[in-house]
């Protein structure tokens, strides 16, 4: 999976769950400024886990602030 594909998956899950257009969000985007609250973000993560068949434990989410940081975490879980 390429990085742009990963970003695209994030954009579409986040747009659907937060019910707003997040199709222009890029990796430098600060999650707290996207208009997604923490409950919705947890749902977005749940959705990425299912789409990509990965598991991201709660304690690894501590300190994640940007979309890029979240995607790094996701990318690390994907089979090489």
């Amino acid at each position: 999976m390429t990085r742009p594909e990963l970003l695209q998956i994030f954009r579409s899950s986040a747009s659907e769950i937060a019910e707003k257009d997040l199709s222009k969000v890029d990796e430098s985007g600060v999650i707290a400024e996207l208009g997604i609250d923490s409950l919705e973000l947890l749902e977005v993560i749940g959705s990425l886990e299912r789409d990509l068949d990965i598991r991201i434990p709660d304690d690894q989410l501590v300190g994640i602030q940007t979309v890029g940081q979240l995607l790094n975490l996701v990318a690390n879980k994907l089979p090489a």
Binding site: L42, E43, S47, E49, R50
Partner: peptide
Amino acid sequence: TEAFGRRP
């Protein structure tokens, strides 16, 4: 609770 949080 996180199970519901991740997927209601």
